[in-house]
Simulated assay, not measured.
Amino acid sequence: MTLSTFVQSGKQLEAELIAFRRDLHRFPELSLQESETAAKVAEQLKQLGLEFRAGVGGFSIVAELKGEQPGPVIALRADMDALPIHEQSGLEFASTRPGMMHACGHDAHTAILLGAAKLLAAVKIKGTVRFLFQAAEEINAGAKAMIAQGALEGVDEIYGLHNLPTLPAGMTATRCGSLMGSVDRIEIHLEGRGGHGAIPNQSIDPVVCASAIVMALQSIVSREMSPFDPVVVTIGSIKSGEANNVIPHYAEMTGTIRTFDAKVQQQMPERIERIVKQIAEAYQCKAKLHYIEQTPVLVNHDECVSHVEQVIDRMIGTERRVVADPTLAGEDFSVYLQHVPGCFFWLGSGPAVDASSAYGLHHPKYELNEECIPLGASLLAAIALQRLSAD
């Protein structure tokens, strides 16, 4: 099989891969619960005759296709977990599990990687392709767990993709350098002194303190950061009290911090702690901050991006590749890229007409244009093949 025939070969797998994806979509599993999904993938790998190791970092699977001649080890990765979202798409194959949905398209990613394995199993290669079917991406845990259990040992390069419903199916988007933001979590615990809501002078109100902290944290972005350094500080939850006429004793907040530069990410814990502690002191509250670093900035390697772009251009044409806009959404593929060179790119999964109006990732009405599945499989397979072609 030559590179030029990969798209056609992928189309021949279309019905099979879509059926597999729809089965996963009907029965989604949350992070660290992907046992049925992993079992279905394992069965497919057995039928292909590939060696694989299951139960890596939870329910992740590492499979290998080895060529007859020595050569590089190229890793391809897909994530498998769903989200705690109640599906409202109305699709015939919608989730049968209340409160769970493949609202990010990881079911399609799994089918795409499986398709790439099927395509590569039919050609001669030098070296090895390692297929990483990863669990727990949505909680930023899967990549770290896989690396800890040796998933990247001996790997020379790694490649992956993510569907994008606001980009038409048939299109791709690539970017050198930083593509996606870092992801950190903050947890803030405030202790005041509870009391009667009608007698505030006898209490120390943690709700007022929490309100001041929320507003003050925004000054990091507006007054401490360069306008050319993208940063987001979002408080996503505030919990305090039970009654309307009671000043509570405690208040708790959680939030997310996103940056687009590793140096900026390293500076954020000090900035957050300074504001939280000093604002709390001003309001006579005690504050505890738990700053959790989750994933780094996703930084593509230029040489690997160039390789991906050359494959895309040769397979489907330069006109079907655009420059990806940067985003502060996070992806734990970034962790792999801290260890080995690689490239992560977008695969269009939206409607051909006016994809910008499509429901985005993590929306309960999110839909994936399944035309992207065979193309994604063909592209991943070709990306690996070009690094491993036997003469």
Rank of each mutant, 00 (worst) to 15 (best):
A78E: 04
G360N: 13
Q8W: 10
G194S: 12
R274P: 13
N245E: 13
E319C: 06
K124F: 04
P200M: 03
V208G: 04
F6V: 14
A63S: 11
L91N: 09
S222V: 11
G348Q: 04
T96Q: 15
H25D: 11
Q149F: 01
V56M: 00
V41G: 00
T5D: 09
V214R: 03
V305W: 00
M253V: 06
M180P: 03
A141E: 05
E137Q: 05
V305I: 15
E138K: 07
Q88L: 15
P230F: 12
A148Y: 08
V276R: 00
G55E: 03
T2S: 08
I112R: 03
F344K: 02
S9V: 03
E29A: 03
L388G: 01
S306M: 15
A151D: 06
L375T: 01
P227D: 04
I147M: 04
T37N: 08
L190I: 05
A280I: 08
A262V: 08
G99N: 14
G195K: 00
G342Y: 05
G57L: 00
H162S: 12
E371H: 14
G71I: 05
V340Y: 02
F333I: 11
Q88M: 15
H362I: 00
A173Y: 06
G142E: 03
H301L: 14
M215C: 12
M180D: 04
D391Y: 13
G195Q: 05
P227Y: 08
E36I: 10
I158K: 00
F260V: 07
G115K: 00
S349R: 00
M80G: 01
S356M: 07
R223I: 14
I85P: 03
S222D: 08
P248N: 11
I18Y: 05
Y366L: 07
M80I: 13
I247E: 05
P70H: 13
S31K: 02
V155M: 04
A82D: 03
A243N: 08
V335G: 00
V123N: 01
T37G: 08
S349P: 08
D313A: 10
E270V: 12
